[in-house]
Amino acid sequence: MSRFSKATLPLLETVELLQKGLPKVPFNATLRDFIEWNNLTNSQRNNFFAKKSSSRINEVTKLQPLLSHCMARWLHVEYKLNYYPYYDLNVVCLYTDLNAGIENAEHVVNYFKRYVTSGVYNRLNYYLVPLYDTKIDYKARSPSDPKIKVMKEGILSNHMNYQIDDPVFVTMINDVVKFLPCDLVQIDSQQKKWTQAYIEYDPQKGFLKQEFQTMDYWCHMTAKLLGLDKDHQGHEMYITTRLVHLFSQLHRTIPEHKLFIIDDPQRWSPNVSTILKSMMGWKTFPITQANISTHLYQPWTKENQFSKDNSTFITDFNQVKTLYSEITEGTKTLESEDLNDFANEWMDYEESRELLSGDPSNKINSVRQNLQDSSLAVIRG
């Protein structure tokens, strides 16, 4: 008999794992929580404060500062069209990499300082917010502009205190969606219902067992929004539970928000059969592409704790847009486009050269070429 049925410890959630660390005895957790704990532990240890090696720099970082300039111009226009002069320009940047978040924020704020009126600049408030509560370490450099405030309270922490009624631009631009963990769900062929993957883990022995049981709240909510019971008869797939959780939290605590996301989309390559089914009105459920760390289930020791890899999940942006519309009860919609198309729409070559403070234009041309080759995409409200 599995220890799932007789465990004395309650199931652990991500917040508990982050606050208390791994228990010294075998414990049970949803696969989602365990993967997220591993990813966030890596982020806090390796990404938040440490300078990245060239091999660890992600695609968004390589496209700076031109990308931040395009984003700043979009923010400026959206603010002037919709909220000025009745509200402040509030930006909440959700991050998993503090230094990259600070760098992007400084580029954006510098644009407003140099190219917009003082009336708009004075109303700018820029907040860097982690997914979960974190400690601001002395190794983290401070923002160069007082407009930028680094928060400790996480947007997904159970005791988070955010409640903002004014309009807010919420940005996620550095692999936030990519690292939000998914749930592995499986159809129970006998009961004809979907179940959720849980794991049993021993700090000394590593991964012990995986079982599929009744879904917890967020997993069940995601499955319901996707209409799995009604429209899908598959066998096993990853579903975007934590993203649904995040969208729900934003809808509840920052109801007047506009989203701006840069991330990796799942590129869909349908066959003829799939295209015909789509034309006939059949629903399709792209399986989230999961890259689970091969080291995740090994015993957690002092020797290997720094070599643990992150697990990543590439989601279908059309599905993301549908889920967001469902969660916001149809009051908000999203549109998506390739990053290069967005950049071409909002780029100003001469301003970018000035913002680079005299750097040769071939640097800009190099970034522009990288944008053309980029596989990233933008989702915005």
Rank of each mutant, 00 (worst) to 15 (best):
K6M: 08
C182A: 15
D373K: 13
I187D: 03
S43N: 11
L296W: 00
D309S: 11
T241S: 15
C182F: 05
E326G: 02
G358D: 06
W282N: 08
M172I: 04
M347C: 09
S118V: 04
I262R: 05
S293K: 13
T222K: 09
T288F: 00
S157N: 10
Y324W: 08
S157T: 03
D33M: 02
L131H: 10
V170S: 02
T41R: 15
I173Y: 05
T222L: 12
F313Y: 15
Y111D: 06
M215Q: 07
D97E: 11
E350T: 06
R267P: 00
L296F: 00
R123E: 13
L376E: 01
C70P: 06
T288Q: 03
V129I: 10
F342N: 08
E329F: 11
L180P: 00
H76P: 00
P26Q: 09
C219A: 07
L131E: 11
D137M: 00
W282V: 04
E303F: 02
D188T: 03
S375V: 06
D216R: 09
M172F: 12
E59P: 02
Q249R: 15
D373Y: 12
N158C: 07
P203A: 06
K230W: 05
N161C: 10
N174C: 14
D341M: 09
F112N: 01
D359V: 08
T240F: 03
M279T: 02
E350C: 05
A140Y: 00
N46A: 08
M71F: 11
E106L: 06
D316K: 05
Y201E: 08
I173S: 08
P360L: 15
D229Q: 11
N104Q: 13
Y86E: 13
S248P: 12
D137Y: 00
P286C: 04
N271E: 03
T195F: 10
G206V: 04
A29L: 06
S311I: 09
K283Y: 09
L355P: 00
D216P: 10
T8F: 09
F313M: 06
D316W: 15
Y79E: 07
S278L: 14
V168Q: 05
T61W: 07
D202M: 14
F317P: 01
A105V: 07
M221Y: 07
D166C: 12
E350H: 04
K178E: 10
D133T: 05
A29C: 12
S68T: 03
L228I: 04
W282I: 04
G119D: 14
T328N: 08
P270I: 08
W346S: 06
M151W: 05
V108S: 07
S5D: 13
S273V: 07
D264C: 14
Y138S: 01
W300R: 07
P10T: 02
L208C: 07
W218K: 02
Y87A: 15
P130Q: 03
G21Y: 12
I173L: 15
L63D: 02
V177G: 00
E16P: 02
M280K: 13
L225R: 14
M160H: 14
S375C: 08
V170E: 02
L75F: 15
S43L: 10
S352Q: 06
L128V: 08
G358Y: 14
D33K: 01
T331Y: 09
L243N: 03
K277Y: 08
S43F: 06
Y115P: 13
S273Q: 11
N161P: 00
Y95S: 08
N58Y: 13
D166I: 05
K80G: 01
Y349D: 10
T331E: 07
F207S: 04
L228M: 15
N47M: 12
N122E: 15
